[in-house]
Design a protein around this nucleic acid. Structure first.
Lengths: 236, 236
DNA sequence: GCGCACAATATTGTATGCAATATGCGGATG
DNA sequence: CATCCGCATATTGCATACAATATTGTGCGC
């Protein structure tokens, strides 16, 4: 996987622009965990100096979706198994309550927005753009947090979603290829009915489903990243 | 309030060093909300280039304890009333469950550590170092999160504690000068007894107490910073 | 005396150059 | 032939110079 694109992009990119672009690329699994994000490479691509690129990378590092190793450079993060567990545990703690709050505050406009999200998600899926579908699926959760009028929680969930995308890239098991859009659909209905209790319950079970669709068996924690790399070739 | 110190500190400071130093100063209320953190000033103090200072400030900005205004500089953040509410609501959502988990994992060594924290806290209080006492009080909460073996939650709580310190600086009402160490003491006992349910309950009520000790009445949000500055001189 | 425009100053934003460090290759050596 | 050491190269870390922008002070006109 390489970062080099055919044409260099407009030079008006700011640090946030770049961070968002990278974040989205990671969300959509166009950048795999472990991919090196070279400063020169990125500054060439976006037509800015390394200074800007560095602040963008630092921003992503704070969200723990990029890991910066001193004198080595920046890499797309590879959350350990333990971190993966933790991320979903926190989400299971935060998001159900947030869904409840969202149900109480939801306006018809909000519901329309969520339905539009679902539509786009389906469209992306049908078009075979599974990365984009995953991205939209994350945005769906974020939108609910935003509706709950809890910016602080929304911020936290935002980074947890980003990390979840990495976790899915690393630990998703193909066997359980169940599409999750039914769950989202049911959630919309509950929120649209201002049914807080049901929304909370649905969100909870939705997250548990997701969590259990991950391949989180015990692996030796030491050098797990290396092992993860090797396991791919070891099966056949 | 000025940042200038008599002697410049050793030049071996790294970005993390500076970020931690500033974070702690904010924790301990030596740096008031709204204080400007000039890049040149800081680079003089710590004997490094502005580059290092900038990454430190960006790090703090990501934790929202510093606000960077474009072309204006970095300032110690001034959480709005709404944000203050939100921060404590999230803490009330996260920390009780975390205290429960901590109670299950707690070892005698952990308990000893917590008791030591309390001792230091009392000592600081008796010495009139209320800032340091507040800092230690925050560390106490963080230590519990660490004991729960949930690094992800601990990270989140860590920044929420930092923000809480700012909120206390802005919205604490003197009337309710109740010292909170009793609450901490009771918590230690519950955790030491591995009593998860009680720990959760105590943490919950402790946070509610804190929350209600804040002066969160409606204030004109516009130019609230300036108002806060002026109110200090208006009393006598 | 008051208000406004403009200039001077100070501070941040960005780019770039040099230094430090890790990596990979090639030759020497056992 | 394998291994180890040292050098060449590439990349990041840090500092500084220059550009852009906000703020403040001054003077002019009214």
């Amino acid at each position: 996987m390489t970062l080099t694109t055919a044409k260099s992009v407009a030079a008006n990119a700011t640090a946030n622009t770049i961070a968002q672009a990278l974040s989205r690329a990671i969300h959509e699994h166009r950048l795999a965990p472990g991919t090196k994000l070279g400063e020169d490479e990125l500054s060439d691509i976006y037509g800015v100096s390394r200074t800007i690129v560095r602040t963008a990378l630092q921003s992503l590092a704070h969200q723990q979706i990029v890991e910066i190793k001193r004198n080595r450079g920046a890499f797309v993060a590879q959350p350990s198994l333990a971190k993966a567990q933790e991320v979903f545990e926190v989400r299971e703690l935060l998001e159900p309550r947030t869904a409840r709050a969202a149900a109480l505050h939801a306006t018809p406009a909000d519901i329309a927005l969520l339905k539009d999200h679902i539509t786009q998600e389906h469209a992306a899926m049908d078009a075979g753009e599974s990365g984009r579908a995953l991205y939209l699926s994350g945005k769906f959760h974020l939108e609910i947090a935003r509706m709950a009028k809890q910016q602080t929680i929304a911020d936290i969930i935002n980074v947890l979603i980003a990390r979840s995308s990495l976790i899915i890239a690393l630990y998703w098991r193909r066997e359980s290829a169940l599409c999750e859009s039914q769950a989202h659909h049911a959630l919309i209905n509950a929120i649209g009915d201002n049914n807080g209790a049901l929304s909370e319950e649905l969100m909870q079970s939705h997250l548990v489903d997701l969590h259990s669709a991950l391949n989180l068996k015990e692996l030796p924690a030491v050098e797990q990243d290396l092992r993860a790399m090797l396991l791919g070739d070891a099966k056949p």
